[in-house]
Structure formats: C-alpha cells, structure tokens
Design a protein around this nucleic acid. Sequence first.
DNA 1: CATGAATGAGATTTCATTCAT
DNA 2: GATGAATGAAATCTCATTCAT
Lengths: 202, 202, 202, 202
Amino acid sequence: MKQKSEEKTRMTRKEAVIRAATELFARRGYSATPTSEIAQAACVAEGTIFHHFKTKEGILLYIVKDMLDAYIQGIEVQAQEAGNGLEAIRGGIRFHFRFIEERSGEVMVILRDFPFQLMEADSPFREVVTTRFFHLVTFFRDYIEVGQKDGSIRSVSAEKMAFILMGMLNGLGRQKLLWPLKIPDLCQEVLDFCHNSLSKKG
Amino acid sequence: MKQKSEEKTRMTRKEAVIRAATELFARRGYSATPTSEIAQAACVAEGTIFHHFKTKEGILLYIVKDMLDAYIQGIEVQAQEAGNGLEAIRGGIRFHFRFIEERSGEVMVILRDFPFQLMEADSPFREVVTTRFFHLVTFFRDYIEVGQKDGSIRSVSAEKMAFILMGMLNGLGRQKLLWPLKIPDLCQEVLDFCHNSLSKKG
Amino acid sequence: MKQKSEEKTRMTRKEAVIRAATELFARRGYSATPTSEIAQAACVAEGTIFHHFKTKEGILLYIVKDMLDAYIQGIEVQAQEAGNGLEAIRGGIRFHFRFIEERSGEVMVILRDFPFQLMEADSPFREVVTTRFFHLVTFFRDYIEVGQKDGSIRSVSAEKMAFILMGMLNGLGRQKLLWPLKIPDLCQEVLDFCHNSLSKKG
Amino acid sequence: MKQKSEEKTRMTRKEAVIRAATELFARRGYSATPTSEIAQAACVAEGTIFHHFKTKEGILLYIVKDMLDAYIQGIEVQAQEAGNGLEAIRGGIRFHFRFIEERSGEVMVILRDFPFQLMEADSPFREVVTTRFFHLVTFFRDYIEVGQKDGSIRSVSAEKMAFILMGMLNGLGRQKLLWPLKIPDLCQEVLDFCHNSLSKKG
DNA sequence: CATGAATGAGATTTCATTCAT
DNA sequence: GATGAATGAAATCTCATTCAT
C-alpha cells in the first residue's frame, strides 16, 4: 500500500482502474460488474476507463495477460533451477500454490469465468490468450519428457499427464478461491499425491 | 395431471424451455444468454418462461439442482456396489467421466460459470445449492475413511484427500468441456494416477 | 365472518373475489394490484375473475358502484328523518363518519386513487360513475336550500356551500384512512365547525 | 458547473424531464405514465431520465419535494406577516388557493395519487415525505395556539382544528383540480366559513 | 489527459387477458 | 361454471460507449 497523499508516488489513474477492476471482477464476476462501478471504486470518471482501455474487454485482457505472463515466467524460473524433471514439476506445483496466495485477486478473475469472452471466435483478443495457454501446456509436457529422459519420472503419456496436472491445479485453485467452504492448505498433500503417481520407484 | 408418456404429448413447454436453456447456457454462458433467445429456441412465448420459472435464475437453479441430484444419486449407487473403499472411489471416478460425457450440456452449465449467482449471501437459492455441495464433499471423505478401515487406502487425511479428488475431477471436467483445445480421454490415466497415490501397496 | 365449512353458507367465488379485491385495492391501490394476487387472495383461479368480471376495471366498477349506492341511499334516509335543513346536513355528516368507519375498505378504494380509470373520456363506465357524483352534489345543494327556506341555514350560495362540505368530508376521509398519521376522531368537531358556519344565529 | 442563466442554456435536459413528467403525471397519473412517454415529451433519450433520477420514483420524489418545500416556505412567510393567529390562518388559506392556481401541475401530481409509493414502509423516500407532512401539521396547530393566546381564536382543540383545516383544504384542492365538474372559485367562501367557526366573537 | 452528461439498444420482468379443457 | 397454462405487449431499468468540453 503506497501513500496516497504524497506528490509523485500516488497511483496513476490507469493503475487505479486495474486494481479496482481486478477486485470487482474477482468478487462479482466480469459480466456482473458494470464499468460505472469500476470507475467509482477507482475514483475516476467513467470516461477515463475508456480513455485508457478502449473497451471493457480491454481491462479484462490487460489483467489476464499480465497475470498469465507472470505465471509463465515464474513457473519457468522455478523449473530451470530444478535438478531433474520430477523436481521441475514439483517446483511448478509449489510455485502454483504460492502464486495463488500472492495474487489471489487476479487468479480469481481468470478462474471465475475464464476469459471466455476473449476466446470467442470473433474476438480480436483470441490469439493473445490462446498463445499463453498453449505455452503452459507445452511447459508441463516438456518437463515430464525431461523427467522421463533423466529417469526421475515413470513412463506415461507425457501429454496426458500434463493435462491431468493442469486440470488438477486449475480445479484446486477454483476450489480454494471460489468455493463457499473453507478449504485447508493442500500444497504438501498434492506434492505427495503427484510424487506417488509420477516417480519411477513409487 | 396428465399422463406425460402417452400418445400426444411430445414435450411440455416447460421441458422445451429447460432444454433450450441448457444448451444455450452451456454454449454461451448464463449471463450472456438473454431470455428472449431461450424463448425463441424453445418455440414458446417469452412470458411462458416466467410463468414456469419465476426468474431467469430460476431456470439455472432448476438445471443445476436436477443435475446435481442425478450426479449424487449416481455416484452413490456406484459406490455402494463396490467391494471396498478404494473401489468405491474408483467407481466414483469412472461414473464422473461417464456422467460428463452423457450429460455434457448440463455439466457445462455448472462448470462454466458455476452458479455463483445462486450462492450469494442474499440469494433465496443459496441453501439449495450449498446443501448439495456439502453432500458431495461428505461422500468422498466417508468412502476414503471406509477404505482406510478396510485396508484398501493408505493413511492420509481423508478430508484433504477428498478435496484433492474433487478439485481434480472438477478441473478436468472444465478442461475437457470448455477449453479451446481437443483434450484426449483421460479416464484410465486418472484412475491409475489416483490408484498409485491412494492404494496401500503403492 | 361466516362459517366456511358448512355446505351452503360459504361465499360464492364471486363474493370472494370482491372481498379480496376490495382489501387489496384499499391497501395497495388499484393499479399496483395485479389480478394474480386477487385470485390468490380469493383462492380462485385467475380465469375465474375474468369469468365473472370481464376486465379488471369491471371489479373496480362493481366495488365503487356498490359503495356509492349504499352511501347515497344511507345519506338520503338520514336526511329525510331530519326536522329541518340544517339537521339534514348534520345527519349527513354524522352518517358520513359512520360510513367511513363501517365500510372503510370500500371507502379507501374510492379515496385512494378515485376511479380515474372509470372517468376517462373513452371509458364505457364513465357515465355510471358520473351519474352518482352528480347525485351527491345535488343532495347537498338541495338540503342547504331546504334549510334556507325553513330558516335553519343562513343565506349563502347553496351550491358553493355544497362543494365546501363535500370537499371537506372527502378530504377528511382521506386523511383519516390514508395518512400515515394517527388522526383523532373529528366527527363532533366537524359538526360544530359546520354548525357555526351554517346556522343562522351563529 | 456552468452558469445556468446566461446566453445559450434555455433549459437543461433535467429540467425538461421534470416539466414533462409533471405535466403527464398530473394529467394521467403517476402509474399510468410510462417513462418512455416522459422521454418523448421532454425530447431526451429514455436513458437520460435514469441518468438524472435513478428510478421513476425518483422523478416523483423530486417533484413532490420541490413542491412541498415551496408550499411550506410560502405558507410560513404568509403567516409571519399576519397580525394575529386568526389572520395567520386566513393568510395560509389564501396562500393555499393561490398556490393551487399557480402551480396547478405539481399540485395535481400530489393530489392525484398522493405519493403513496414514497410512503411505504420500505421506501427509501419515506422519511423525506413524512418529515414535510409533520411540518405542515405542526404549522397549523402552532398558529391556532398563537391565535388562542392572542385572543383571536376561540378555545378548541388546536390539533383537531388543524386536522380539520388541512383535510378541508386538501379535499377542496382535489375537487377543484381533479373532479370532472367545473367547480366555482371558493376562496372567499372558505375564508368566511372558517372565520365563522374559529373567531372568538362568532 | 480527464470528465461526466447523454445515448439507445437490449435485458428482465409484469400482467391483463384468452382459451382449450 | 372453473381452471391455469400460455401469451405478447409494454414497462422499468442497465450499461458499454461516445463526445463535447
């Protein structure tokens, strides 16, 4: 939290919009959040939003892109530091849980209603988002293959296993952030769970 | 009350509305589907919708409730027929994959934007939905405990494991039905994956 | 209150509709009361209402006509029994206050939004209502003139005085039945008030 | 904030809406006037109405509040200039008749269906309207008491007399503005009528 | 850059009335 | 007589977006 009163350090209006939108999209969903409320929460005029983002979808795109880029970069850094394929995957899982905690707002936005609006066939943003998703799928598949080559991961379809891991992490994220129940922290259990299933020696 | 099955009645108007709504909600999302289009697709007057379901949310509730009840009933039947706890869980997973295929429309509705509208604190439908969710969580936890008693499942926190399983199945469902990629069938792999992690002998 | 369970004595459906409608129109106003609620309150099907009354306005007309006829008849009987013009007017005022108490439901209906719908130039009911209003104006004017002839009422424009009396009684009725304040009983004070103004000797 | 009176600005869109609404509510009643017609009559888009007044009720509230404030202020100025209590009341009555002529549109709005919608227990506007009504009742009661102290008004219950006066003025206003008959001007007669009943010497 | 009044297309919902049973 | 499913016109209100200042 920055000081709001000092001269130069205060948020630009654009940042204020992003923050307000993230919080509202996370809490109430993209389509249930009117731009008027975003403006109000960000203490800017409604026109200002459109001055910076052109459309409402533009805000969503900005948030989603920003978040996915950070996720992709973070998970890759994790993996590169690992000693073998299995450790890379485990590092990825650990990073996932940390990321969900630290940037829960943005994550909720994307988990809530997935950016379906951005993926429709006629959306100008379709490619921007698809690209990043392919990137993630590839990441998991590649490191599983690495693990199979270095002997840390047993012989299974790398692609299928990649989908299982991603699906699981996604589902657990939704559960944690969106369900009406208090979900306990599951990081360690998930690590064990995956370790048992992936590692060569069981 | 008329007989529904005999000669003339092919489909009630109410049924027609439900079918049309399910299909549209699944394809375009709840809030992006106007009631006018539901009416058109169901070949009824818009007023007819509101005659049967008081509100638009009412349609969603009907679909979700119907689907969850079928899911709960089906998964319990599966489990009761199993020889031990682990088999019950495996039966549940198999049922889950079958259910997702067979009733993909309704499942997409609930996976797409989850009925968040029905869960908000002031919604009259909140309880209806929450009840069913608790029911499901309990189901998984109980059968894991059964498996631990009968020796088929290793010693882990039953509750945490229940959450992992549910989160995974949920996430995989979303991936399968909603992602812009063609996802291969993962049933067998998921069964193995879970078996490895749950069974006592590894 | 009649017994509802005995064979023949129970209300006809038509009566039930009238009662329910009177109560609802009084409490919430004519146009804010949907026919569906009248049906519900009367425990009949919505179609039944239209079976008996043809239109929603028809119900209003029935109530208003019934009530005005009773009012006119009652006030005339009162007046005919009086010894002179002033007493006739005083009797009318007394009757007015009694009537308002005894049939407050129907009176509220007419005082609330006056049957403007029935008075519009193109309403088929216009005449039915207007006739009764003229009748009332005439009643007051005539008895004031009687009082002026028999020496009990001072010399003032009978017509203007009739309007003042009617306006006053109307306004007081509204105040009593519709205002959000508890209004004390004003019958005696109004009698005095008018006596002072009308009687020859002051 | 621009100057409103200078050169170009003939009428704000907001003002236009108020004028149009006043006229239509007066002529056809609040609930029989759709916002679409108000927009048309005011030559603005329908959205503009809701931009300025959140709801249709908001328009009614604005008109009623504005009118009641003017009424209260005017009647108090009148009274303060009077020599004694009786004259204050008479001044009030005179003001009432003048006000009804000059601002007949707004007065018709409030007399037609009284803002019952604004008074219902759960209306956010309830207090705004109630406050002003209490104010008026108090005004009349206080000046009658003043008159009783200065000897110009006879000894009667000030509160009851206040209610009689208000009820009478209200009823006469309705008669004048809303009845389907041509009602003669009654100001002088009402003044006499009240004078006879209130003044000490009869 | 920033504003906020204005827009108009469109969404949900209400409701009097009809009609086949 | 009685019913209640069905209707469709109309009403209120929402909201992303534009544009003159």
